[in-house]
Write a protein that binds this DNA or RNA. Structure first.
Lengths: 253, 253
DNA sequence: ATTAGTAATTGATTCGCGTCAATTTTCAAG
DNA sequence: CTTGAAAATTGACGCGAATCAATTACTAAT
């Protein structure tokens, strides 16, 4: 009982997510200082909101366990889903410029988060250059993630979108040190469809085809990837060769 | 001659873009310190690149005059256009997390920019909290702009996309204190089409209809908006009422 | 275990926008 | 001014994904 109660109460210095969360690149002493301002919340149940559009921005959130969906409502009333966030991800930083949350964030599963009051975080980051830099990096990554999403939406067809989604999900599980060919992902296909700018029917048909072709099996909350290479190819993911990048690396005189 | 030569050499303290660029919210003395690290470049010609994908990130750029297109190349080789940037906009901040520029940035018109070496900017921002905060805000805005773009791409049809593009462009000219119903915008319709995830043919047809309906005339580099309200409606832009926001403003217990 | 409500599946049909093709217009270089 | 290449325009046609509709499979609450 006591153990269970404290399970979600592990501090930053002992957290398994240090490599991908805030503390990346911080000294041990600095992690302790960061830890001192972190508020560890009791776990959220499925359907609970972390924040809603328009609320006064006070904290950013680091996810320790579970899944969080970030979305807005269009004026026609339908959801625009902007992302699904996993343990180690930090959300809420986009509210900064307006001092109000610009989106809604809801737990899709039992979810555990750390809340970090932003004014304290900002004060602390003025004293710890590495923390400040880390904050910049997190936001910079947020911009880039949005760009990838835009590219998916504007350039790829339905098959590529679904393939890319599963492939990139797999990569995220891998980066976190989890099994990346077989994992639990408790998100409705309906939500994935919306995220990809597709309808549930289209996603369902594509998943049926992926199963028939023995590439991916996605049933209920379980995803199993049988042919990761084929999946990457279908996703149209570029293989990063240093050559290509260097050829483009022509300086402006 | 001497005047012309110095026209692009105005310092931050006298720059007309203070309200929308970096100096927002800074004290006069701080602006002077910022000014001291700014490198004012000679104007770029149409087609010149500010930076290219993969180059080592060293500076962010504030645009003083002209237009800059930011884009990437997909593995199929076609352009993914991520935005058009106007005077007062700051670009390059997304390169931060990887230390390499993640996009290409090219001048579409004679363009004047300030380059700000990022290591110096970061050092200075550690000494000036307001500057650090402003940097956070700029990046936060970048994230939100990306989200708006994603929403356009995933939820709106071709007519709404084009209408929204012109309307939002108009708003940006307004915010900069320029004429917002009649202005010069030296960007190819082909590029706008790519940005909107459409083909040039589709954009051309829609512009023809907008002209027939006496809403917008876009010929060559000139845009003239005759019916801004109609345009906003067509764009499907939500009218921000405080009521709606407050209704959503339900705190999590 | 039963049941009601939500999600997923599958098929038939529709339609918005892309593709292809042919002119016309624009713009920069000589 | 001339000329050639790039951009924009306009029309005909086809396809991919949305929509509509009906059935089946889950899930959670009684």
């Amino acid at each position: 009982m006591g153990e269970l109660k404290n399970a979600f109460n592990i501090g930053c210095p002992n957290c398994g997510l240090q490599k991908i969360c805030f503390p990346t690149g911080l000294m041990r002493a600095d992690i302790t200082r960061l830890d001192s301002i972190v508020e560890r919340k009791t776990p959220l149940q499925k359907g609970d909101h972390l924040y809603r559009f328009g609320e006064i921005f006070d904290s950013v959130f680091a996810i320790k366990a579970g899944v969080v969906k970030v979305y807005t409502l269009t004026n026609q009333g339908d959801e625009q889903i902007l992302g699904f966030y996993l343990p180690g991800d930090v959300i809420g930083l986009d509210a900064l410029s307006t001092k109000q949350y610009q989106c809604n964030a809801v737990a899709l599963d039992t979810t555990s988060v750390c809340a970090i009051p932003f004014d304290q975080l900002e004060t602390l980051s003025m004293q710890i250059p590495a923390l400040n830099h880390q904050l910049f990096c997190l936001m910079s990554k947020g911009v880039n993630d949005g760009r990838v999403h835009s590219e998916i939406l504007s350039k790829r067809n339905a098959d590529q979108r679904v393939a890319h989604f599963i492939w990139s999900l797999s990569q995220r599980f891998m980066n976190r040190g989890y099994l990346h060919t077989e994992f639990r992902f408790n998100v409705l296909q309906r939500d994935v469809a919306m995220y990809l700018g597709l309808t549930p029917e289209t996603v369902s048909r594509i998943l049926a085809r992926l199963a028939k072709d023995k590439v991916v099996y996605w049933k209920r909350k379980e995803i199993q990837i049988s042919d990761l290479d084929k999946l990457r190819d279908m996703a149209g993911e570029k293989v990063h060769t240093r050559e290509v990048e260097n050829n483009l690396n022509v300086k402006l005189g």
